[in-house]
Design a protein around this nucleic acid. Structure first.
Lengths: 191, 191, 191, 191
DNA sequence: TATGAATGAGGATTCATTCAT
DNA sequence: TATGAATGAATCCTCATTCAT
């Protein structure tokens, strides 16, 4: 008996990602995925319990890829603001360099297809960032708000910025990005 | 001859709104809307060209309702920061008091079903706010960023806050809201 | 109380004819006719019992128009062959000059929507021609076949010729037409 | 894995043929076909791209069946007139013995659902006959007309004859058929 | 007469999923 | 593991026709 072919699973996920970004989440169908992956519809069900499961796994995989890209180059011995700066910079670059992943995440973020388990796992990947907020609040560097609010204060404008970048309505220059990050920091930092 | 029944159109839109917030945009179907509106599927097509048209019109109607609620009580003779405070307060309250509308807008904001014409019309409803940003930048009160970024800097965290409110994870007290708005202002104001 | 507006009936029939020739009989719908005639769907039902009735009446009207065009200029004092020549020439010219009517008749000829009453009425319009065949057989000028066969022997190749003409695969010159008619005559004439 | 069931495809085509001849092409629907074939509507789409494709394939299959029946027993060493006689006799018999196929072809011949590719393929099946016309013209046996006209000169009256036969308005006796074929030959033969 | 609204039934097609191999 | 066939349910939408005015 053969092992599950990881390449095949990978391939299915990759095709799904592309289909979602090109045709929209609501136009995604299992048979389209099958066709795009050069695989039988039935095969997809070997790797994924159902469509919902597939999408949730794709979400997790994408978030994981992003999290790796964001956190691995951070120097945790540096001060908090500098860590923040590095992380957010990485975040912006990841989304600028991976348009497919960016478009996918944008579409899926508020979708009801993401189940709570998935959302929890996803949050855990970004616990580093949440810790940073918690510590920042303890050290009286950051405003004493709910960490989710502090988090949005950064993620939303940066995502918006990247969207403008992909629409070529914004340059994406280091200066611009620096300014953006400063703005975000100001929003969460204690005055 | 019979006249178009405005109640019927209203009813269809209302049912759609409810269905979207309870079952999700991707589970919305014309026959479900028909059933919920106690109307034949064919009747919907008298009032709306197709499903896309219906959703776009629902979006516009909702945005219009919101815009009215937000802008009508603003005192434009007051200074810019105070105007901002009033608008954002109204915005938060509208979304707290109209959970259905809030949930709908959250789901639809990044959806590809919204056509450019609709987005343009929607933007025009909020031109007041954009003018405020423009003026603020001219008066050197606000940071010199793209207005869409300044806008996101406010809308994203407030929407996030309202989400937490509906999940009963924040209080929604006047103090909390005041703090939130201050945080938003700090993010966009020149130091 | 107003009279039925004959122009309106005429207009509905005309629109139907055009719709059938441009979009095909199977794509004809009452609402399309209504739209094309600038009339309410309900209005059509004042003039026609139903869709079938409309089509049958359109068929009769078209056949009548054709029959008038074909038979009025025939000189019945002339000999049988000359009468035949005139009639067939008129038939060909009518179909060359009225492409819409030609295309309509082609589409409808073998359709089951034509009821027997309509077919009978239509046949009666062309009784002149059938008489000609009967007389011809009596006078031993024509072959002693069923008149319907003799009739087809003429109508089919001439219709085919006109089809080629409208497809611009045939000239439509008087000589060509003369040859065609000779061929038809040879097919039915006693040797 | 399962193989495509040729019987199923055959069955779908057969059901379609019957439905068309009994209820008319315009009353044909995919769900009716599904029901008549004891198959899910979705299954039809495994074998045919869509309704149009199904009809076109049914047309080709029917024409093929006819072409086989017409041409296989012809003795091509015999003279042209004799070949013609054999072919036309076969043609008439095929249509007399296969009423369903006959009625189907009559309905579909001038229908716009037949695409040009199908018509081309169909023509190629009958190239034998066209060659015969071409050779006949070269040998000065046949009139020098467009082969499509010569062809119609035979097919139309024979089809009409068969129609009368099925309506029992004509005997179908060998003598009648012989006379009919003579009439057709006279129409195309050089005098 | 004339009409726009209204509709249940049905149109073609695709869906997510399972079956049989 | 892998698959193409198979499917009932669902999709959006249009139909011919009638209603109420």
């Amino acid at each position: 008996m053969r092992k599950k072919d990881l390449n095949k699973e990978e391939c299915i996920l990759q095709s799904s990602l592309t289909l979602i970004t090109t045709q929209g989440l609501s136009n995604l169908s299992m048979s389209k995925i099958a066709k795009a992956s050069h695989v039988s519809p039935a095969t997809i069900y070997i790797y994924f319990k159902n469509k919902e499961d597939l999408i949730n796994k794709l979400y997790l995989k994408t978030k994981e890829k992003m999290s790796e890209s964001i956190f691995t180059t951070v120097h945790y011995q540096q001060n908090l603001k500098e860590q923040y700066r590095q992380i957010v910079t990485n975040f912006i670059h990841f989304n600028m360099e991976n348009e497919n992943e960016f478009l996918f995440l944008e579409q899926i973020q508020n979708s009801p297809v993401l189940d709570s388990e998935t959302l929890k796992e996803s949050d855990e990947m970004f616990s580093t960032l949440f810790n940073l907020y918690t510590v920042g609040k303890q050290k009286k560097i950051l405003k004493n708000s709910d960490s989710r609010l502090l988090s949005t204060m950064t993620s939303s404008p940066t995502m918006e910025y990247v969207k403008l970048f992909h629409k070529k309505q914004v340059e994406g220059s280091p200066e611009e990005i620096k300014d953006l990050i400063i703005m975000c920091w100001d929003a969460i930092a204690k005055k």
